[in-house]
């Protein structure tokens, strides 16, 4: 177990370093940061001086090395655009993204499982067909289009919900939260639906197909034959046995929700790290881009690492096989 964990940890570190290396080799293609930092009155000499000062003339390997050296001490540099420490900026904007992701994930799981079970049990009802057809929209329409459609319907035409921003936030010990105000909750609705719709349809379709599979099994038939209540059969026996793959997929999708919040945040001007990242690309704000990419890769690597360990704990076969091989 320990050897397995250590080996996984080592592999995760290598992945992180490679992601960083690729990221740094790409930055030169994003554009010239200095051009955005100075007014149009700057001379060529100014540009050269700032390039030198920011260390942009160094080969990217050297820049990466310097970045890593500072990053391990918790210093991610200063944003070119905002002239403030990157760590502060990310810490300030992360709660917005995390809250949005949490609500989206909750919506996706609740409605995904609910609709999935419903369409499996009543698989020939008209409501099931309707849900299945509508869910195709969730899979096939691009996120930004869904966002714009929701804005035009609920903000412009009906005027029920805000079209942009977070509404009023309450600062709880440095963590600005949406959850404590009405306008904060209202502001959450459209972006979280936009962000979670794809995952919701994914979970729903997964639950449905697993459920249909399980409902055909002998033990379900026997349960019915024993005269157990329909509710008990469906939820205590059938659903429970469909959840293992669902949990795996949901866990992995959680990372995607945070990472792909970029588009939703841009459409709704949601002040999270995704919007920060888009802005930093436009401005060629290399310190922010580097820190964000590293953060996201740390997150993905951590989730995968956790999933690996969970497999190890959940699946006894993995354990016996390995110990057998060792002997």
């Amino acid at each position: 177990m320990l050897a397995f964990t250590l080996r996984r940890l080592f592999q995760s570190l290598v992945v992180l370093l490679v992601v960083g290396l690729v990221a740094f080799s790409m930055f030169r293609f994003v554009g010239d940061p200095v051009d955005n930092m100075m007014g149009q009155e700057r001379t060529d000499a100014d540009v050269e001086r700032l390039w030198e000062k920011l260390g942009l003339n160094d080969p990217f390997i050297v820049q990466y090395y310097n970045f890593l050296g500072r990053a391990v001490q918790g210093n991610f540099g200063v944003s070119y655009k905002q002239a403030r420490p990157v760590a502060d900026i990310i810490a300030e904007q992360a709660p917005a993204t995390l809250e949005l992701a949490a609500v989206s994930a909750l919506l996706a799981i609740t409605f995904g499982i609910g609709f999935g079970v419903f369409t499996a049990i009543r698989k020939d009802g008209w409501a099931s067909h309707l849900i299945m057809s509508v869910s195709l929209i969730g899979v096939s329409l691009p996120t930004f289009l869904i966002g714009i459609l929701l804005i035009y319907l609920f903000a412009v035409e009906l005027g029920w919900l805000p079209s942009f921003g977070r509404g009023d936030v309450v600062n709880v010990g440095g963590w600005k939260t949406n959850f404590l105000t009405l306008s904060g909750w209202k502001a959450l609705i459209l972006p979280s639906i936009t962000l979670g719709l794809y995952q919701m349809t994914l979970i729903m379709r997964l639950v449905r197909s697993e459920m249909l599979e399980v409902l055909r099994q002998d033990y379900i038939r026997f349960a019915r034959a024993r005269g157990l209540k329909e509710k008990s059969v469906n939820f205590r026996h059938a659903l429970k046995n469909t959840l293992v793959p669902v949990i795996t997929v949901t866990g992995l999708q959680l990372g995607s929700i945070i990472a792909f919040a970029i588009i939703t945040e841009t459409v709704f001007q949601w002040p999270g790290v995704g919007l920060l990242f888009i802005n930093s690309i436009q401005f060629v704000d290399i310190p922010v881009m580097a820190a964000y990419l590293m953060l996201i890769s740390v997150m993905f690597v951590a989730i995968n690492f956790a999933v690996d360990l969970l497999y190890f704990a959940v699946d006894p076969r993995l354990r016996t096989d390995r110990s057998g091989a060792a002997r």
Binding site: I151, A155, V156, S163, F164, T266, Q269
Partner: peptide, 18 residues
């Protein structure tokens, strides 16, 4: 002052009176 970068959202915010 609330910057809204996405042009469609910016127009929507004006249309909805926000």
């Amino acid at each position: 002052f609330t910057p809204i970068q996405n042009a469609a959202t910016r127009v929507a915010a004006l249309l909805s009176g926000e």
